[in-house]
Nucleic acid binder design. Structure first.
Lengths: 143, 143
DNA sequence: ACAATAAATGCAACTGTGTTGCGGTAAGTA
DNA sequence: TACTTACCGCAACACAGTTGCATTTATTGT
């Protein structure tokens, strides 16, 4: 679970240097498994961790395919760890994001694929992002 | 196209008072047909239109089913006019939102329905929101 | 048509997220 | 070990979102 050597490999593959700050951020994502906003991450990191550094780490991770942005209707941007086959050129995120109305957490359902969408004539398809809202497994079982 | 009497009807059905400001905002949405951010709307409205008033109008319209929030990965909230059968209790937005990578506009594809999603055991489905990215009809035809 | 009243507006003030520039620091490399 | 360049940390700023309160205005009943 998120060892230092894992982090090193992830960063090297992305062409990024291994720094203490980046390792810490990666740790957060491998421990928590939900999509996280910058505020969420700041709560977990040591309080002296620089806000702007975190901001830039998130963007560079996104750019190199380590993280992907998660759609959200709340206004704040959230990120989640990319599954296996993401590269800088081609992200593979055709999976569903699930937002629980009870615990408010957003998680990736990697196993649920987004069905084919039939667009009207004239429209060209590039990518689809699907957010499902409801009650997650955890919350529905603890009743 | 967006007459005053239309506005009156829309607002009365929603239990909201008919004011000049609300009419102006409604006009904007019936003229432009894409999803609009608060900044987009401010550009169109007279410059003395109060920012906070607009903010509250958008929220109250959303609460009473006149507008719905549109998912976006850019961080800023956007709204679009609801189709026919929206009430305060039950919004009906199981349609697709389409974001054009060329003109950056987001529109509702009311005619495209979101397919059934099969969730893993334990998950309860409430609602699904789908954003498709690609090239819109306008942009793909003007090549 | 007018007064009562509750809703809506407009202003002030503030919080929080997003973003850029730049000097100092530290990771990778020879 | 020294060099080069990416990365970090600070400052400063732009702008979206949010709340409280005094004033104005749309509706309701007389």
């Amino acid at each position: 679970m998120g060892s230092t050597s894992d982090n090193k490999e992830i960063l090297q593959k992305a062409g990024l240097r291994l720094t203490r700050q980046r390792s810490e951020v990666l740790e957060v994502f491998t421990n928590k498994k939900t999509a996280l906003s910058q505020a969420d991450i700041e709560k977990v990191l040591p309080p002296q961790f620089d806000r702007i550094t975190l901001y830039r780490i998130l963007r560079s991770f996104e750019g190199s395919g380590i993280l992907h942005k998660v759609l959200d209707d709340s206004g704040t941007t959230r990120f989640a760890l990319c599954g296996h086959h993401c590269s800088e050129e081609e992200h593979q995120h055709e999976h569903v994001h699930f937002k629980c109305s009870a615990c408010e957490k957003i998680q990736c359902l990697e196993e649920v694929e987004i069905p084919q969408i039939r667009l009207p004539k004239g429209y060209v398809f590039t990518e689809a992002k699907l957010l499902v809202e409801g009650i997650c497994k955890n919350c529905s079982e603890s009743r």
